[in-house]
């Protein structure tokens, strides 16, 4: 155990000597894909609850496809599948993007988490109390202002518990990144396992690190809920 720590702590945490590896890569994948997913999910969730079929159906199809297939398959399709198409390789911009495994992993993760986040937000928007929307309308707010001032602030707050789950699941999902040659935390654990044959210690260390990040996320979301969901807290607490 000590010898593994001595030799591989850098690889587990941030660098295998020549490039970023381990926890830093996992956190970067998580942060960037969750950020992209969040930003895209808000307009998509609004579109998803639209009464116009031409707006809501395409979003429904997108979330249906991405929630209905395993992330692993999506990553394989994006990393191996798309790059095997010759027009992708001959278009220099596409070639530059899809050549890099990191780009492919981020794209797959962002699309995947965005699909789930869209549904979480759309559910919260649908659950907005009728009275609030009617009151907004009575004030003469436009549709946009209603969403900006009334519906989205309340819906995003109420979506927090569900959204925190999604972020933690996304952390665990980053462990398939190595399929696209991205040296994430699990890849380092596999390296250590094949170099030392101390499987329990090698994977146990990775598990501990994932657990630590999960705890940090749970804590952060609890703080966020205390702040933004205070109106739902029972009195006297």
């Amino acid at each position: 155990m000590i010898d593994i720590l001595n030799e591989y702590w850098k690889a587990y945490l941030f660098s295998d000597g020549t490039r970023w590896s381990g926890l830093v890569v996992t956190l970067w994948l998580l942060a960037i894909s969750v950020a992209i997913g969040f930003v895209m999910a808000i307009p998509l969730a609004v579109a998803r609850v639209s009464s116009n079929k031409w707006v809501s159906r395409p979003v429904w199809l997108y979330t249906y496809v991405f929630r209905g297939t395993p992330l692993y398959v999506q990553l394989l399709l994006i990393y191996t599948g798309i790059y095997s198409l010759s027009f992708v390789r001959s278009t220099s911009l596409l070639d530059a993007f899809f050549r890099d495994g990191m780009h492919c992993a981020i794209l797959a993760f962002a699309l995947n988490t965005c699909a789930y986040t869209t549904e979480i937000f759309a559910g919260a928007i649908r659950a907005t109390a009728h009275g609030e929307v009617e009151a907004a309308r009575a004030y003469g707010m436009s549709k946009f202002t209603q969403f900006r001032r009334i519906i989205l602030p309340s819906a995003l707050r109420r979506a927090l518990p569900g959204y925190s789950n999604e972020v933690i699941l996304m952390l665990h999902c980053t462990s398939v990144a190595f399929t696209a040659t991205v040296p994430d935390l699990l890849k380092v654990a596999r390296d250590v396992n094949s170099a030392t044959y101390q499987s329990f210690e090698a994977f146990g260390l990775a598990a501990l690190l994932y657990l630590t990040v999960s705890f940090a996320l749970v804590w952060a979301f609890r703080q966020a809920e205390r702040r933004w969901l205070a109106f739902q807290r029972p009195l006297g607490k």
């Binding site: 000597g17 190595f178 040659t181 390296d191 094949s194």
Partner: peptide
């Protein structure tokens, strides 16, 4: 291939000198 002697070799001898060594599952 990840975990192989080839990976160890390529990383030790080439990766530090500007060669991009990619490991695969």
């Amino acid at each position: 291939l990840q975990g192989s002697t080839m990976e160890t070799y390529a990383k030790a001898r080439w990766a530090g000198s500007g060669v991009d060594v990619a490991s695969y599952a």
